[in-house]
Design a protein around this nucleic acid. Structure first.
Lengths: 346, 346
DNA sequence: TAATAATGATAATACGCATAATCAAAACTC
DNA sequence: GAGTTTTGATTATGCGTATTATCATTATTA
């Protein structure tokens, strides 16, 4: 059977353009890349070469150009979970959106490192684990970092691969660039609002395992307590039980800062079962955007993590640091959203 | 200030691996690329080389590999719009999800080709078009195809770059692989439902500009008319005006098939303004998933495009055809969703 | 008019890898 | 033990481009 495509035409090269234009290949390259070096091309020659390029339909070979240029203009994106969310409004999407926008502006493509759902055992070593990341000029990472991953990352950094993490991450033995949000300041703001409304005793309600960003919030809370001279405590119960809530209410807690909306829901339900409702008997705010659910009820006070901006900043940090600068980090402000869930105590 | 990272080391090359392992660069290449040629590497040597690669964290240079004619286990994803959706426009997400899943299973990474938000007029020639796609082993494409893009694509195909389009696309002068859904059959099903309810006169309401998938629907409609022997017409008005709706209703139209939900909304509003409401005075169905809005009202009859499966199939087609087989195409069935919007005519 | 500077190029090379061609040594055949 | 095959590699080359070093010619200066 005859091939359908008409005898695959090889694409024209600079050499062919050069021949047709009666110049050298180097001259053609110069026409393309402007007068960076000490090579000068007069306008007449330039025009002639451009004309031949148009006639031949010349398009540079990206691979060759990248090979000669030393880097790929590819940024890796490594998430510990699939990138494209099944639920429409996913927590990670805004980060990725910011990454994509900025990469596009700076003319980088994104290499999405996919993770097989089930690890298939016997892969050649050179394709496994961290090493594949080095295909890219640098890598943006998102997600939780357990101990094994921390080791991988340390090695990668040790090899000199540029990495920027979204969210503050602590990797002992290595210096890591990251983009974070100022959770401490935002949490302090939340506390300040409670105090301004007259709440005398507050509670910071957190998840049992505190990752870096949770610790930032907690620290902001403690600093805020100190600044305002008000009284409050941090609790990280394994479960938000009725007993726990009863105890806190009995102790006089009227204002709450909750690490995420799941904790908030648990508290609200347990409190309601005991006849306590917001915003009358207590006030509260959520310390961030919804993680587990699609959206927060409109009346809940909370702060917004600048996810889009964080994504953008991560790429900026990465491309800026590609020259070999030492790791830097950036902290962006959160936006506070007031809501009916904060009022004056009874 | 002393650099924090240990003096960024350049990425190791095959030559360096070769030196450390006491073999030639060619031998290293052979270890990577299996025993294709007449070069034989015994297992002892192979293991030694692999070990050195692991020690050094060697990773092949994508560009060099492409230039020399090798493969990268990278699939390109080219969309004509940003990939990561703002919350409303998530029509594409299921496709991408399927692509990601399948790529991960088959151990490919994805190269997301980013597009600058605003094309800056005077871009150098070599940045334009589709030239950068060639770093990947093959490319999945999504989105509308205007004439200029069609030319780009034709050239790319002529050069032998494997491409699979999501959605049927017609590129004169080239054979293109694509994954489509059986819009014709699904539309025929919709018509059959209307006819079964007793509708004697139906209308196919389409957008003015019909792309391939719209034409498929239209054809399915016409075939269905012929099969059922019922009467109906195709209309592609510039705008769904009150006059237009009044005319159709006066002509006795009681069943409608609408190309998308925007048309449906326009019709419903205009009809309501004239005192006509569904499902009493007319019935309708939407021919596909919501494109412009997030979700379709639950009672609207419509069919579902198997977007996840289409994404999956596109990668299958691509990796299957990477050996150089001729282009193939796949058509997947849609799923019909009944709803209250189809009833018996008055 | 000889010396110097500016102009307009070209030749040579490197980038990292795949692959064809080649070759030395070891193992086998008769 | 001379020829033949097999094994285990190496050397050489090309992919298409960017860039540096180099050079011939023309214009300018002293």
């Amino acid at each position: 059977m005859a091939p359908v495509t008409p005898a695959r035409r090889k694409r024209p090269t600079q050499r062919e353009v050069a021949e047709r234009a009666g110049v050298s290949q180097a001259a053609v390259s110069q026409v393309l890349n402007g007068g960076g070096g000490q090579v000068r091309i007069p306008d007449s020659t330039r025009q002639r070469v451009l004309q031949v390029m148009a006639d031949l339909g010349y398009v540079p070979n990206v691979a060759a150009r990248r090979l000669a240029g030393g880097h790929n203009r590819i940024l890796g994106v490594f998430t510990y979970e699939p990138v494209f969310p099944s639920s429409t409004r996913d927590f990670f999407t805004p980060f990725l959106q910011g990454i994509e926008e900025t990469a596009a502006e700076q003319d980088y493509d994104l290499l999405l490192h996919t993770r097989p759902a089930v690890s298939g055992g016997a892969r050649p070593l050179y394709r496994e684990g961290t090493s594949r990341l080095r295909l890219a000029d640098g890598t943006v990472m998102l997600g939780q970092l357990d101990d094994a991953r921390r080791d991988d990352l340390r090695r990668l950094l040790g090899e000199g691969h540029p990495v920027v993490f979204i969210g503050r991450r602590n990797v002992p033995g290595a210096e890591l660039s990251y983009v974070t949000a100022d959770y401490a300041a935002a949490t302090g703001q939340g506390l300040a609002r409670l105090v301004a409304q007259g709440h005398r005793r507050t509670l910071y309600l957190g998840a049992p395992v505190g990752h870096e960003s949770a610790l930032d919030r907690e620290q902001g809370y403690r600093e805020g307590l100190h600044r305002s001279g008000s009284f409050g405590e941090v609790a990280r119960p394994t479960e938000v039980t009725g007993t726990f809530v009863a105890q806190q209410l009995a102790a006089g807690v009227t204002g709450l800062l909750m690490e995420n909306e799941r904790l908030a829901k648990a508290w609200i339900d347990a409190a309601a079962a005991q006849g306590h409702h917001w915003p009358v008997q207590y006030s509260f705010a959520v310390l961030g955007d919804p993680i587990y659910s699609g959206e927060l009820p409109a009346e809940w006070a909370h702060f917004r993590i600048p996810r889009l901006a964080m994504g953008r900043a991560s790429v900026g940090l990465l491309t800026g640091g590609l020259g070999g600068q030492p790791p830097t980090s950036v902290s962006l402000p959160c936006e506070w959203v007031d809501g009916r869930s904060i009022g004056a105590p009874e």
